[in-house]
Design a protein around this nucleic acid. Structure first.
Length: 271
DNA sequence: CAGCACTCCTGTTCGC
DNA sequence: TGCGAACAGGAGTGCT
């Protein structure tokens, strides 16, 4: 499932093949995504040059002079470059961005939790207007977590997954960062010390950075081929390891549902 | 506002 | 071995 590192890896992977290129057409085979793909998206984008690709949270923005294509990969989405043109589309190949010169940027999303929308020039899309800071920016600090968490009684894990607090911390990395920080995921956000929030913020940055670095080794998978683009093995301490031994102390990892999300932690190493 | 539950969807896993 | 049920999960929406 694409988390922030996968989305950033996608951005870097498709940028060399799309930036500076002109869009010839947009082929929408299935418009029923999270929200309907706008019917006029092809008219808006055709003939436009893709000036750059920006990532904000887990959204990708393909900027042109006439507006921007806003893409989210949801749970199961992927973007892949087909430099030599478009082979027969598969069952979930919902949208093709056909480029001058014959290359194709193909959007695939089996569960259709993703979206493709349009943003007018100079406007901030409502989906982006209330987002917290980027986790890898200087704006994201332990002090921010400390300040924003005061008075909040919900679990810290839900707190750091709240996109209005900080963006891009999905379930996998929330679990991992809390393990690395020695913090139980069900601890009340408002009752965690400034020092521990410093540690947590650093670990969130660390785990995301290392995942992005690992993603760099799979960039070739974004082009052609039939491998699944954008996903890469991640060294995981707790996520998906419920019932297995903690890599720190050997105790069995426990699983708990928090805010509809599975949370895995070590009762000994995390307090 | 904070904190939930609900919702979208389909591939995978599980239980019998 | 096969089949239906349960599950996973990003994040917007709506309710308390």
């Amino acid at each position: 499932m694409p988390e922030l590192p996968e989305v950033e890896t996608t951005r870097r992977g498709v940028a060399p093949y799309t930036e500076g290129r002109i869009v010839r057409a947009v082929v929408v085979r299935e418009a029923r995504l999270r929200w309907p793909v706008p019917a006029d998206i092809g008219q808006r984008l055709a003939g436009q040059r893709i000036q750059g690709i920006e990532r904000r949270a887990k959204y990708l923005l393909f900027h042109s002079a006439r507006g921007s294509l806003l893409v989210h990969l949801g749970m199961s989405g992927s973007l892949r470059v087909l430099p030599g043109g478009a082979p027969q589309p598969g069952r979930h190949d919902h949208v093709d961005i056909v480029l001058e010169g014959g290359g194709v940027l193909r959007f695939n999303d089996p569960r259709r939790f993703g979206c493709i929308l349009w943003v007018e020039p100079g406007e901030t899309h409502p989906l982006l207007s209330r987002l917290g800071p980027e986790p890898l920016s200087e704006d994201f600090t332990g002090a921010l977590l400390m300040r924003r968490s005061r008075g909040r009684r919900g679990p810290v894990k839900s707190f750091i997954m709240d996109g209005q607090v900080v963006v891009g911390v999905g379930n996998i990395y929330a679990n991992e960062a809390l393990y690395l920080s020695g913090i139980r995921p069900d601890r009340a956000a408002g009752r965690i010390s400034a020092h521990r929030y410093d540690t947590l913020a650093e670990n969130i940055k660390q785990v995301l950075t290392s995942a992005i670095e690992q993603g760099g080794t799979t960039l070739r998978d974004f082009v052609g081929g039939d491998g699944k683009p954008g996903y890469f093995a991640q060294q995981l301490y707790v996520y998906g390891r419920a019932g297995q031994p903690c890599k720190g102390c050997g105790g069995l990892l426990r699983e708990q549902r928090l805010g509809q999300r599975s949370s895995v932690y070590c009762v000994t190493c995390q307090r």
